[in-house]
Design a binder for these strands. Structure first.
Lengths: 171, 171
DNA sequence: CAGCAAAAGCAGTGATCTTTGCTTTAGCCA
DNA sequence: TGGCTAAAGCAAAGATCACTGCTTTTGCTG
């Protein structure tokens, strides 16, 4: 039931459907539109819920190369590759369009923060000088997302450059 | 006529109207919905047009304090104050939801790039070591927008910190 | 002033959405 | 097994939206 709905939304978003409404989703999921109207306030709420679920489902293994620069570069590339996938871009846009109060404290940001924290912690234990976790989020993650959202190019070279930049802040 | 439409859109967006459609805009503007249907492909197109107009209308004077750090800090604060205004946030979201090909090469980004370029140029003429223009966009503008989009706090201290960070990249 | 073309208004139609009261099904516990 | 409750389905009504052919206004030009 719920998974059918999530799947339907995922398919529609992936297909780039321009018309995503409760009736449309309901038909695809094989449920009654009323169910959706009763469970979610509006389409955006559902869309955002699915987006969060999709974006936080990380099968991503965290790099552990023995060097923070390597770790961050691989990590940035993984993220770059991930968020530039067409359906992810759509999800991102959906999230941005969603209501503010729901987006704040969204699990996506938290996941990234934890991952960054882990890599930094390992690096510091190795005695490396590192930037802070907020710095990594601000200067690697933010630019990546920014580029995606504004349809600017995101490639390996760009990711590499961001990591290089943030490492100049290491203390 | 056209200004009435733009004004209507501006009001509706500012009020946080959840229901922004051609009929609604038309009534507010005192025009016939048909006019809107004929002139714009869809609501997003109109919304995005107004957004660009509003975001690029810069009465913002570019700081010129004699120091890049001061300039960037003031500039970042101006932008931070500007983009955290409720209607600006809405416009941002509208723009992001708009079609990709329209967003890319959007005037807003260009304006920021030119402004950054101007300040960097002046600083270099003074003999200051400066970060590059892309670095400023990536590490000051991107994080600011990122925070706004994800409803994270954007205050003076944050802006100051971003500028401080980017200046460590000066060469 | 007359005429012409572009733009705006009008009204009607069909499609889609949204909501609501009521019925039916499904799951759970005594 | 029987009943109770929450969730899902159904159907109908009202609202809104999207579009279109036609008329009216506007503004310009000869």
């Amino acid at each position: 039931m719920l998974t059918a709905i999530y799947t339907a939304v995922g398919e529609l978003v992936g297909e780039g459907a321009d018309r995503i409404s409760f009736p449309v989703i309901a038909e695809r999921a094989g449920v009654n539109p009323t169910t959706l109207y009763r469970r979610w306030d509006d389409v955006n709420a559902l869309l955002e819920e699915v987006a969060v679920a999709a974006l936080t489902r990380d099968g991503e293994s965290l790099p552990d190369t023995g060097s923070l620069e390597q770790d961050l570069t691989q990590w940035a590339n993984i993220i770059a590759r991930d968020i530039t996938r067409p359906e992810r871009v759509r999800y991102l846009r959906a999230m941005v369009s969603a209501r503010v109060d729901i987006v704040s404290g969204c699990p996506v940001t938290e996941t990234r923060r934890e991952q960054a924290s882990k890599m930094v912690h390992r690096a510091r234990e190795r005695g490396e000088a590192t930037p802070t976790v907020p710095q990594i989020l601000d200067h690697v993650i933010a630019p990546l997302y920014h580029h995606v959202v504004f349809a600017l190019p995101v490639d390996h070279e760009y990711a590499r450059r961001l990591v290089h930049d943030v490492l100049t802040m290491a203390r």
